[in-house]
Amino acid sequence: MASLITCPHCGRRPKEEFSIRGDAVPERPEAAASEEAWHAYVYLRENPRGAIREYWHHVAGCRRWLVVERDNLTHEVFAVTDAREAATGDAA
């Protein structure tokens, strides 16, 4: 990872084509969810050392948001999925 990333649409591309947003695990709550749930969604992070899911945006490529599953200690990448697919289970 982080030197080369395999975009499911564009193939293996260098890191500098992507912008990275952060943790892809928290899910946006329902509007009516509690303030605690919203606070947790916007602000709190598990931030584990090891396997994580992270949002990457292929800005200089297909402009799709991707979910990159990787290890943040070894920088090994396990999988890269289109975010829509990750959210809905359907291919984008």
Binding site: A2, N72, L73
Partner: peptide, 18 residues
């Protein structure tokens, strides 16, 4: 920063270059 989450005390070349 290198922008991706990392607990490794090392970075990558893209940021070195920029």
């Amino acid at each position: 920063i290198d922008y991706y989450s990392s607990y490794a005390q090392r970075g990558n070349l893209a940021i070195v270059e920029s």
